[in-house]
Write a protein that binds this DNA or RNA. Structure first.
Lengths: 343, 343
DNA sequence: CGAATCTCTGCATGCGCATGCAATATAGCA
DNA sequence: TGCTATATTGCATGCGCATGCAGAGATTCG
């Protein structure tokens, strides 16, 4: 049976002090004698009292400051994707350590975007981290208009004045291009993450630029949706054509692994013998002994640390302008790109 | 600049009605004329009003009922593990669809357990889902004592009267044993998830039982920590011994894949030629063409659906007793266990 | 030893909303 | 039309806490 929770009044009565004293005992820096605070805390502990965060949030909504809930909303899509899982895990740890709590929203369909948005507003969250591409612009715009700090992680929304932390997609694509061109590849394909996806588009643009500098162009392209299966299927399509690619740059490691597995185990191709593969992200599975996928690494930890910093800054002091941080993707050379140049 | 949020009073003034009317317009089933409700909702939409969930939560804390926040706490460890990532993703979707919101806690160290616990209590969450083994007992006990419904997912805490949803670990172990024994293996090792881990212990117990029935016993055992790396290292240790195992049952797919990669790509062993491997969980990577890991599948979707059902039931009606649901693990036959019997 | 500080303390109040209650408007009916 | 039953409405209040304010002790210092 759910009991009525213990309130500061209960503690006050038990300790023979006023409710204000109890409140102050739990507010760092409040004006209260150390002795008394200790006594109150002892009584509170005995009764199992925990300040009611909801009520606290209510009362902080005083005349001038806006209400603060101590919660940060995180919006994500496909949390089961290893990249997002790792990202959320890190965000969660760092935010928690800094005393913030996380309201999590998984958004798959457009309809859910509005629901999540509504919930965020209703809960008066203090800030939002958006990882989902899906309508992130609309959502970012709305929150931002409400005055809630927003941080876009690996997304951008130019012109909105919203802070972002991003990996260098274009430069990553260029690195991949340079590597593959140097290895003597001439038929380099691109495997993207979907037509409307800006991340994928930037990576492809970088690839195209880099190839152009080497006098090459993108040999073929396929679209996936960032899943293993889509990488696998794209591989089968790529090799069902007349002229086959001799290298593929994939917009993500997960798709690259799908392509790698299909190539090796379904088509019987040698990688990197018959085909070179480059991924993006450097997820843990990329480094597994049987994969050793050459890829572009995101400095995830540093990026997230920075993202949290930026968001907290803006939650704590109003009126700060947006900050945009870009991080370079590091080329991780493993074993899915041939090193011998052969023509 | 963070603006002061729009309140029901603002809407009331703009619409020329009382604050109560606004409140009722947003409460399904409240006594208000349909016409008026529509008008108020229109004005509210125009002003961008969203009922304040925090204030709402405050006022629902009336004399008899306890306060309700509309939030469910989820406690998890190692969110980056694919099993947990998928689990959280599903929980999140289903809970959201049912109108609940998720307060997420990642707990790695013992110290953080208490922090999370405190936060849960402070936020007056309506229910908790615990996925972390770490001190789950202490936590479950505390919440339960407070009267907050608790659901343990793939954990147990016998004697506490707490609801659980679990996979059949022991029977899963028995299935693995039966399969391996039938394949003619005689030196079957177990790779566990850590000494204190109950899940791992049950799976091992099932294995031992099943082997005993075939007149065998566990040939060797190693401990990992559910990570790929630990599986890989355990493999190296297993094969550094004098007499080598000819099959390994692993407490998780992630470790099984670590072992598989190490065996094939570092030790040059053939799987299943030289060594059979059985995992547990059936994570997506288990089915990848290059792995084709034989494993025990958890009916994750059904389990989570059931778990949510159980929790919601208990959040909505007080005084319900605990419910325990067990689901059978299904043996998924792929290609890492030899089929030809050879002695 | 008294006045001036300074440190604590309790009182009273409001945060935004839901809701019991009484008042009012509307409908139903003879 | 007049009167009762019913549907709406507004008023007033409390949820639990933080905090401005004024008073009460405690401390300092001349």
């Amino acid at each position: 049976m759910r009991r009525r929770a213990i309130t500061s009044y209960d503690v006050a009565r038990a300790a023979g002090v006023s409710q204000s004293a109890v409140s102050r005992a739990f507010s760092p820096g409040a004006s209260i004698a150390e002795r008394k605070r200790a006594q109150i805390l002892a009584v509170a502990a005995e009764l199992g009292y925990q300040p009611n965060a909801i009520a606290r949030s209510m009362s902080t909504a005083r005349s001038d400051q806006p209400q603060r809930s101590g919660m940060v909303g995180i919006i994500v899509r496909r949390l089961e994707d290893p990249v997002f899982a790792q990202t959320i895990a890190l965000f969660s740890r760092i935010l928690q350590r800094r005393g913030w709590h996380i309201l999590l929203f998984t958004v798959d369909a457009e309809r859910e975007v509005d629901e999540a948005l509504g919930a965020l507003m209703r809960f008066r969250i203090d800030g939002v981290i958006i990882l989902s591409a899906l309508l992130s612009r609309h959502m970012a715009e709305t929150c931002h208009a409400e005055g809630t700090p927003v941080l876009l992680y690996n997304r951008s929304a130019p012109g909105l004045g919203i802070s972002t932390v991003q990996i260098g997609n274009r430069d990553g694509g260029r690195s991949a291009a340079a590597l593959l061109a140097a290895a003597g590849h001439a038929r380099i394909a691109f495997l993207g993450g979907g037509d409307g996806d800006a991340t994928s588009a930037s990576r492809e643009a970088g690839l195209a630029e880099g190839l152009a500098e080497a006098g090459l162009e993108v040999f073929a392209r396929e679209e996936g949706d960032y899943t293993f299966t889509s990488g696998r299927e794209a591989c089968l399509r790529l090799f069902a054509r007349g002229e086959r690619p001799d290298a593929v740059f994939c917009a993500s490691d997960v798709m690259a692994l799908g392509l790698l597995h299909a190539a090796r185990h379904e088509l019987g191709l040698a990688v990197p013998g018959d085909l070179s593969v480059v991924g993006f992200d450097d997820i843990p599975a990329a480094g597994w002994p049987g994969h050793r996928l050459t890829t572009l690494r995101q400095p995830v930890e540093r990026m997230i640390r920075e993202a949290v910093e930026i968001l907290i800054e803006r939650m704590e002091t109003a009126g700060l302008g947006p900050r945009d941080e870009h991080f370079p993707a590091a080329l991780i050379l493993r074993d899915t790109v041939r090193t011998v140049l052969r023509r």
